[in-house]
Computed example of a mutant assay.
Amino acid sequence: MPTELAYRDDAYAREIGARVVSAAAEGIVLDRTVFYARAGGQPGDAGVLRWAGGEMAVGEAIKGPDDTVLHVPVAGASLPPEGAEVTAVLDWERRYRFMRLHTTMHLLCSLIPGAGVTGGQIAVEKARLDFDLPEPPTKESLTEKLNALVAANHPVTDNWITDAELDANPGMVRTLSVQPPRGSGRIRLVRIGGDGAPVDLQPCGGTHVRATGEIGRVEVSKIENKGKANRRVTLVLAGE
């Protein structure tokens, strides 16, 4: 039975009531969760599961078999009993940083059109994207343009399309190393900006802020040469 992903409907939900489907050292499966499972360069969420008479710290959420989410306990944690009703509570400060950084990565993509993304990773302190790009813009110009997009407070929304619709618009896929998941019959698109001429529009399963103004000031801290035509751009949330 797949885990219901409540964050898909509301990325700002910080906790949820759920039932324990199974409990093992490799992870707790709930019937529903607000925890994002590690994927696409975004780390899995951390937090805590609470139930009558106990609680368990979650080190990270990862993907489990059959479209489930495994809430991995920290070492030595007590596990909830199967069938127990729990409250799953996010480490919200950590998740919200991921949301801000992930949305910034989409903005960065919009500033380097036509270049394929060969890799990416989000951490608490920073995020980075690798581009198939011989000559990147300067970090100063990218920083200035990113902050202009942040200040414009563009809305961030999502919708679903079919596999066939994506096949008809292959340019929406920027990532060369990771392709959008297929098989369910639909693919989630994340849009920044209005319907007419969005700032960015691409498939993505991650969590994002509702508007770019929430990101705050950002900075391109460095641009590195990682190969003949591979440039790594590192982003940080400035002043934090």
Rank of each mutant, 00 (worst) to 15 (best):
C109H: 09
A238W: 10
A168C: 03
L5D: 12
P65W: 12
V233H: 06
A46R: 10
H102Y: 02
D91R: 06
G119D: 10
T118N: 11
R210C: 15
V156L: 02
G41W: 06
R32P: 13
S78G: 12
Y7R: 06
L111M: 00
I192Q: 01
G114V: 03
A168H: 02
V72F: 11
A6F: 05
G185K: 01
P203C: 06
L166W: 04
W92E: 11
R95W: 03
L133G: 01
S110Q: 13
P80E: 03
A211P: 12
R14N: 13
Y96V: 11
P2Q: 14
A229S: 12
R32E: 04
T3E: 08
Q179K: 15
L176M: 14
E135Q: 06
F131T: 00
I122H: 00
E93S: 13
C204W: 00
F98Y: 13
A25L: 14
K139E: 01
L70M: 07
T207P: 05
A88C: 06
T103A: 14
K222N: 12
S110Y: 11
G116M: 02
C204Y: 05
T104V: 09
P181T: 08
N225Y: 01
D132H: 11
D66R: 12
S78K: 13
L30Q: 01
G196A: 15
L101K: 03
T138C: 07
A197R: 10
E140N: 04
L235G: 08
L189G: 04
P203L: 09
I62W: 09
S221Q: 14
A13P: 00
C204E: 02
G183N: 10
E60F: 10
A46S: 12
V173W: 12
W160S: 09
V236M: 04
T33N: 04
R50Q: 13
R174N: 07
